[in-house]
């Protein structure tokens, strides 16, 4: 269970990215985070695994205070929380294998990992996770020769190496063709349903939220403006989240 209490983030340049945001995510949920670009979705997700330091507020993950954790402690928390990114964030010049293996770094000793030495178990795990996303035959290929959709699947396989209980997905399909968006979200849905991984996913398109999320929250200018079921977002709600001039578009 993830609990966020009064989370606030002010950047050094004065931008207030999050204002007093509080919500809870129960285990096994698929929570969508919606809102315009710049509404604070990315900041929120990055505060949860402390890639960004919150200014004030608390985050509890299974009753551990994430905001108070330091050094090795925060790394122990991070390894339970997988993350996939809009720009995939893979090392393009390295192989699929090395990229996937980097997801295991929180579990292994530093020294062997510097020499790229991994246990047979971890290597088998990498193969299994690549199999899960249908890329096992690309294991020794360099990432820059893969398509965007394939790169995002490598990103998912990397996150799975952490055996996460929570998965943060920051606009995982915004850089992909609409057709590929479904294939990526289906993988996340599968992980959510089959492995019981809690998913926190920021999304742009409302119809994707309807299709995949079990619950949704919406941010506007850093404030939480909606909390509820996806089907509860009616036209009035929609206009208040996205502004009066927004219109619904469909990509299905």
């Amino acid at each position: 269970m993830l609990r966020v209490e009064n989370l606030t983030k002010v950047y050094p340049n004065g931008t207030q990215a999050l204002k007093n945001v509080s919500f809870e995510v129960a285990d096994g949920e698929f929570l969508a985070v919606i809102g315009l670009s710049g509404s604070g979705k990315s900041t929120l997700l990055r505060c949860i695994n402390r890639l960004i330091e919150p200014t004030s507020g608390k985050i509890y993950w299974d009753d551990t205070d994430v905001t108070a954790a330091k050094g090795p402690e925060i790394r122990k928390i991070r390894r339970q929380i997988g993350m996939v990114f809009q720009q995939f964030n893979l090392v393009k010049r390295a192989s699929v294998y090395t990229n996937v293996m980097s997801g295991r770094l929180g579990y292994v000793d530093t020294f062997p990992s510097l020499l790229h030495v991994f246990s047979a178990q971890d290597r088998a795990r990498a193969l299994a996770n690549l199999d899960q996303v249908g890329l096992s035959e690309k294991i020794h290929v360099r990432v820059d020769s893969l398509s965007g959709g394939q790169q995002q699947r490598v990103g998912i396989a990397r996150a799975l190496m952490q055996e996460p209980k929570l998965m943060l997905a920051d606009e995982p399909v915004a850089s992909l063709d609409p057709v590929l968006a479904h294939s990526i979200l289906k993988y996340l849905e599968q992980l959510n349903k089959e492995r019981g991984i809690t998913v926190l996913c920021s999304l742009h398109f409302l119809d994707l939220v309807h299709r995949y999320a079990t619950r949704a929250i919406a941010l506007k200018d850093g404030e939480l403006v909606f909390k509820g079921l996806p089907q509860e977002i009616d036209d009035a709600q929609f206009k208040s989240i996205y502004g009066q001039e927004a219109e619904r578009v469909s990509i299905i």
Binding site: N49, L51, R75, K76, I77, R78, R79, Q80, I81, G82, M83, F85, N89, L90, S102, G103, R104, L105, G106, Y107, G155, R158, A159, M161, Q162, L168
Partner: peptide, 8 residues
């Protein structure tokens, strides 16, 4: 960012 997020 991604590798930091894995707890490395």
């Amino acid at each position: 960012e991604a590798v930091t997020a894995t707890g490395a």
